[in-house]
Computed example of a mutant assay.
Amino acid sequence: MGDADDYIKPVRTVFVTVGTTCFDALVKAVDTPEFKRELFARGYTDLLIQMGRGSYIPTKSTGENGSLVVDFFTFSSSIADNLRSASLVISHAGSGSIFETLRLRKPLIVVVNEDLMDNHQSELAEELAERKNLFCARPQTLYQTIATMNLESLLPYHPGDAAPVAKLINRFLGFPDD
């Protein structure tokens, strides 16, 4: 009793979702050894990747030798359970994924897919990042975001006030600000 080997580390999962898209750049960014080491050093135990239509296959790991447990899947009828059990969510910039994660009050890093044309999703992510509701990154800056993030700096999202979002949508559609 009290033996160090008896201590079970609590599971802290990082859940990555690309939705129904192909976003290999995000999957590749979370599949690097240095990214996984940084997550593990920050106390995360598991990395679960929902890779969507992507063709890049991440490396699975059982977590032996003091490393991250890594698993992946393509699609699920619902990622709600994955979001609920996550300690940190890394998501594409789809508004459904963003707002579902914020509603659950989970720390969130939104990674913008720069390969998409007419990327209005980045405006939403950047606006919410300015409000400190989430962190916003690009695939090439994701490691730096993880390495320097302070989850205590994030503020809860309060969905009650739609005016700022409506203003953002109006600006996107080309209507003048009131």
Rank of each mutant, 00 (worst) to 15 (best):
A29T: 08
V30I: 07
D31C: 02
D31Y: 04
K36E: 00
K36Y: 06
R37M: 12
E38Y: 08
L39V: 08
L39E: 02
R42M: 02
Y44R: 10
T45Y: 02
L47Y: 03
L48Y: 06
Q50V: 04
Q50D: 00
G52P: 03
G52S: 06
G54Y: 04
G54H: 04
P58L: 04
P58V: 02
G63N: 08
G63P: 05
E64W: 10
N65L: 11
N65F: 11
N65K: 13
G66S: 09
G66M: 04
V70E: 07
F73P: 10
F73Q: 14
T74D: 15
S77I: 12
S78E: 11
I79D: 14
N82Y: 15
R84S: 14
A86K: 07
A86F: 03
A86S: 13
A86L: 01
S87E: 13
S87R: 14
S87T: 13
I90H: 00
S91M: 06
S91T: 07
S91K: 06
H92W: 01
G94Y: 00
G96Q: 01
G96K: 10
S97A: 08
L102I: 09
R103K: 14
R103F: 09
L104V: 11
R105M: 11
R105Y: 04
L108Y: 05
L108C: 04
V110K: 03
V111F: 00
V112H: 00
V112P: 00
M117V: 12
N119V: 07
H120D: 12
Q121I: 01
A125E: 01
E130M: 15
K132C: 13
L134V: 09
